[in-house]
């Protein structure tokens, strides 16, 4: 097997605060291979976006990263800030939820994509602008020559997100991190953008980390899934396996909490309570206070252990199937 494009080994992120140290990411490990999509799924505060920012080296001031983050075998945490900046845009790129905040309102869309090409590929201004127009065509922006001369406010939300994707992929990065790339978009436009990311990935072999709260998006677009809860990985599996045979109680609850398009369920399986305060997390399994399967042992932290081949869950009670047998 070739070297994975991205490898995280027991990554932790800490922030000093007035009330003590906050650890929004606590021992996260996963890897992504070229041309594959790994989805990181979880609710607000689970640490999925902080993980993305840690990979990119874009954490807010004060954030400290522990563990290891390797891009194509190179340890990113050992690099100087300048070296890391050189990797961003060229080797690794990121698309954010709200494209308006990541585009500069004072420059045209084409100029911004061209800038990335000049910086990372050393193209002349004219060649870079021509390449930017070609990228616009490839992400199927209608009238690419005209749109390249438009300012961000003149573009619709879906069009801006296409510009961001054109910019992110212009330099053929090894890794694309998409953080809720379609959450701000309407459903018909969301479908177009996600299809576009898939198509680009197939074409360029870019590895994609897709950060989302939407299990439907995960099902349609991910090869592998990491489910995060309160800063830790609850479950990790191939996408098809996760949906067919979920193992962690949190995943099981989440799947039941989404109303289904064909209807049927009289009542949604809701997970009671709220996400724990990360300044003061419960000991052991962080999901235990909300978990209907919790036992005394859950006061100790369960390891992320293999339940079936290639399918891991951090739960003392996995596999839960024995419970079903007892109940039957």
């Amino acid at each position: 097997m070739s070297t994975p494009v991205l490898e995280l080994a027991r990554v932790t992120v800490e922030f000093p605060t007035d009330r003590g140290r906050l650890r929004p990411v606590d021992g996260v490990s996963f890897s992504v291979e070229a041309g594959k999509t790994l989805a990181v799924v979880g609710e607000s505060g689970c640490g999925k976006s902080v993980t993305a920012l840690a990979i990119m080296g874009l954490l807010p001031q004060g954030g400290e990263v522990g563990g290891g983050i390797r891009l194509a075998g190179e340890e990113l945490l050992a690099l100087t800030p300048d070296q890391r900046r050189a990797r961003r845009g060229g080797e690794m790129a990121m698309v954010f939820q709200e494209p308006m905040t990541s585009l500069n309102p004072a420059f045209t869309a084409g100029e911004q994509v061209a800038e990335a090409l000049r910086l990372h590929q050393g193209l002349s201004p004219d060649a870079a602008f021509a390449k930017a127009i070609e990228m616009f065509r490839r992400v199927r922006i209608p009238e690419p020559e005209r749109r390249a001369r438009s300012y961000p406010h003149q573009l619709s939300g879906g069009m801006r997100q296409r510009v961001m994707i054109a910019m992110a992929l212009a330099c053929r990065p090894r890794l694309l991190i998409a953080d809720e790339p379609t959450t701000a978009l309407d459903v018909t436009v969301q479908a177009q953008i996600l299809a576009l990311i898939d198509e680009m990935k197939r074409e360029t072999g870019t590895a994609v980390v897709l950060i989302t709260h939407d299990l439907g998006v995960v099902r349609d677009h991910a090869d592998e899934v990491v489910v995060m809860y309160a800063g830790r990985i609850a479950e990790r599996a191939k996408a098809a396996d996760l949906f067919a045979n979920p193992q962690h109680p949190y995943t099981i609850g989440l799947l039941g909490a989404v109303p289904r398009l064909e209807g049927g369920a009289a009542r949604l399986a809701s997970i009671e309570g709220t996400v724990p305060d990360l300044m003061n997390p419960p000991p052991g399994c962080r999901f235990a206070p909300r978990c209907p399967f919790a036992i005394a042992q859950c006061a100790e932290q369960p390891p992320l252990a293999e339940v079936t081949p290639g399918h891991q869950a951090a739960c003392w009670r996995a596999p839960l199937d024995t419970l079903l047998e007892q109940a039957a």
């Binding site: 439907g216 045979n245 979920p246 799947l255 399986a269 809701s270 997970i271 009671e272 209907p292 199937d321």
Partner: peptide, 24 residues
């Protein structure tokens, strides 16, 4: 085409999810 979610987990998942409702 009828809007329909891809099948998940089947009977096993439904029975496990029932634990959440019972707990509530």
């Amino acid at each position: 085409l009828v809007g329909q979610d891809a099948e998940t987990g089947g009977e096993r998942l439904r029975r496990l999810q029932a634990y959440f409702t019972d707990q509530t």
